[in-house]
């Protein structure tokens, strides 16, 4: 369990990234921070592995204030996947994945074996293992990034817009893959995105943020759609644009689902 207690963050130049933020992220679920740029979502994510230290308040992991923990060791115990994968260009794919294990003191041979195994888990052909990151496509690099985040089997996985830089088709593949992985692995995932569709697809708990880390609404995707807290949320999730308000029309005895703009989106099957 991750808990933010009255967190605030003012950067050295005086900008307030987060005003006053409190939230509990239950274990083995995916929490998605979603909002436009400047809403503090990445800052909040990076507080979990002390890449950013809060100016006020505490972050707790399993009831331990992480300010009391050595930051390097803390980071080694948490998986981190970032936009553009952030792979080390001078190390081969397999060594990029094994790096985290080696930092954790795992022997060379075991690190290699486990890295090969996790490459398969994320759906990468092991023939890519001896290539350098620059020889891979963006989607493949991102899978390596996910493999690196998972290889030490951390309880917590932080994902900072991990699929933001790949094309829509690959993004969809990676999202599906992540859902499958999460079913098997049961990690506590903190995921940051500006894409509300991605947030609703992946999140058990979705946190919609306004400027300065102010929470607009927290809830499951269904809760948020059923009862948007205010106009900001309504507009952010797209209810006012009509793409989320669906109704059923009969066509030749088939019930077709049509959205608010009149576009047919699917067929309703009788259960």
């Amino acid at each position: 369990m991750i808990e933010y207690r009255s967190i605030g963050k003012t950067f050295a130049d005086g900008t307030e990234a987060v005003g006053d933020f409190s939230l509990v992220l239950p274990s083995r679920t995916t929490t998605v921070f979603v909002g436009s740029s400047g809403c503090g979502k990445t800052t909040l994510l990076r507080m979990v592995n002390r890449m950013v230290d809060p100016s006020r308040g505490q972050v707790l992991i399993d009831d331990v204030d992480i300010a009391t923990r050595n930051r390097v060791e803390l980071r080694r115990s948490i998986g981190y996947v970032m936009q553009n994968a952030g792979l080390l260009p001078h190390r081969k794919v397999i060594d990029n994945v094994a790096t985290v294990l080696r930092l954790n003191g795992v022997g060379k041979k075991e690190a290699r074996d486990r890295s090969y195994a996790v490459l398969e888990t994320v759906g990468l052909d092991t023939s890519l293992a001896t290539k350098y990151p620059s020889q891979l496509s963006g989607g493949q690099q991102q899978r390596v990034g996910v493999a690196r985040g998972l290889v030490s089997d951390p309880n917590i996985l932080l994902m900072d817009e991990p699929f933001g830089a790949v094309d829509p088709i690959v993004r969809e593949e990676l999202q599906t893959e992540l859902l499958r992985l999460q079913r098997d692995l049961d990690k506590t995932i903190v995921f940051v995105t500006h894409d509300i569709d991605e947030a609703f697809l992946l999140g058990d708990q979705v946190v919609i943020l306004k400027k300065g880390g102010e929470v607009a609404q927290v809830g499951s995707p269904a809760d948020i759609l059923a009862a948007p807290a205010d106009d900001f949320v309504r507009s952010f999730v797209g209810i006012d644009k009509g793409s989320r308000t669906l109704h059923v029309e009969e066509r030749d005895g088939v019930r077709v689902v049509v959205d608010g703009t009149g576009k047919a989106t699917g067929v309703l099957e009788s259960s």
Partner: peptide, 11 residues
């Protein structure tokens, strides 16, 4: 970005 990732990985 690479340096940031290295730090986050626990270097």
């Amino acid at each position: 970005g690479v340096l940031d990732a290295a730090t986050a990985a626990g270097f």
